[in-house]
């Protein structure tokens, strides 16, 4: 499983990081993404939906979200 720590990223920064690992997801890798705040969680979910991926697991610890994105 790949880990993206995007806790220091905001706005388009989170999606830019996710775009870098698309090839890995397409080849079956799962990507765990750490983001802070609801807006960034929204971005990860929206991006996954648009790309035809799925957020298969989600945990929250305070304001930090841990989302596992994978191929359908």
């Amino acid at each position: 499983m790949l880990l993206i720590d995007a806790t220091q990223k905001n706005c388009k920064g989170v999606i830019t990081e996710l775009e870098k690992v698309r090839q890995a997801i397409d080849s079956g890798e799962k990507v765990e993404t750490l983001v802070v705040g609801i807006p960034n969680r929204v971005d990860v979910c929206a991006w996954a939906r648009r790309k035809g991926y799925v957020v298969e697991r989600e945990n929250r610890d305070g304001s930090t979200f841990r989302l596992t994105v994978s191929r359908r």
Binding site: C11, K12, I15, T16, E19, D43, A46, W47, R50
Partner: peptide, 15 residues
């Protein structure tokens, strides 16, 4: 709107 915003962010645009 959600689709347009996500698409723009993917391209590195501010929204």
């Amino acid at each position: 709107l959600a689709k347009l915003v996500t698409e723009a962010k993917e391209l590195g645009l501010s929204t």
